[in-house]
Computed example of a mutant assay.
Amino acid sequence: MPPAHRPALSRARLATLTLLTLVSVLTGCSADPDPTARVVPSASAPGTPRSGQPTASDAPAAPAEVAVPSVGITSSLMELGLNTDGTVEVPPAEEGMTAGWYTGGAVPGEIGAAVIIGHNDTRFGEAVFHDLKKIKEGADITVTDKTGKALHFTVTATESVAKNAFPTEKVYGPTQERALRLITCDGDFDAQGHPVDNLIVYATAS
């Protein structure tokens, strides 16, 4: 497994840096009793308004819920940060039916890449993103923020990738789009019971 990089940087500091090339792998969406994330995001800037200077009135509210009607997914969103080793948190296995928004990326609706992570399965059974593999290009993803405002995103592509070849820059890197990525596990299981791939859903604001 490639080494995990550990960016010890604040969000404000990240916003001033260019993209770093980091190696990323996501695990822990199986029935493993102690799931952990091995996704380490790039040091990309969160979205900013078109003026280039974020203001309180421009900034979207934090997301509260995600829904993918075409595959029957609806979930509240917990906030996910970084573990002490610098890897991205995932929802606890006992809360496998709840997805999480990575707070180090963009807020959904900002210019930039917003990332939502959910389990496929945990030791407790099928989890929130179990049916995400059924999603089709053109499908609607709705993110509702804490003020009740619904933001709509249209799926532009899906990708199943080996965890040891996770496309960090493509997922977390800078973009001028109001982008959304959903991530879960996918593929066959290895000898330790971990899925060997990740499923990534790419979407942009409608």
Rank of each mutant, 00 (worst) to 15 (best):
34 D>Y: 08
106 A>E: 03
152 H>T: 15
202 Y>R: 13
185 C>V: 13
27 T>L: 07
86 G>I: 02
176 Q>V: 09
48 T>S: 14
33 P>W: 01
82 L>G: 00
171 V>H: 03
110 E>G: 01
201 V>M: 06
185 C>K: 11
2 P>S: 07
126 E>H: 08
174 P>Q: 10
153 F>G: 03
99 A>Y: 03
131 D>I: 00
1 M>K: 10
170 K>P: 06
169 E>F: 11
132 L>I: 05
150 A>N: 10
206 S>M: 05
34 D>M: 04
38 R>F: 07
187 G>R: 08
19 L>G: 10
72 G>M: 02
179 A>R: 15
89 E>I: 02
173 G>Q: 09
12 A>Q: 13
173 G>E: 10
83 N>E: 07
194 H>N: 15
50 R>Y: 01
206 S>H: 10
24 S>C: 08
69 P>G: 00
196 V>M: 12
53 Q>T: 15
151 L>T: 08
52 G>A: 09
131 D>A: 08
13 R>L: 14
80 L>Y: 00
196 V>Q: 14
118 G>A: 07
33 P>L: 05
15 A>D: 15
169 E>Q: 14
102 Y>S: 06
9 L>R: 04
86 G>E: 02
73 I>Q: 04
111 I>D: 08
48 T>R: 15
20 L>C: 09
9 L>A: 08
110 E>N: 04
170 K>E: 15
65 E>G: 01
70 S>R: 11
159 E>S: 15
69 P>N: 01
68 V>K: 06
87 T>F: 00
62 A>D: 15
180 L>R: 09
167 P>D: 11
77 L>I: 02
118 G>K: 05
87 T>S: 14
180 L>D: 10
63 P>Y: 09
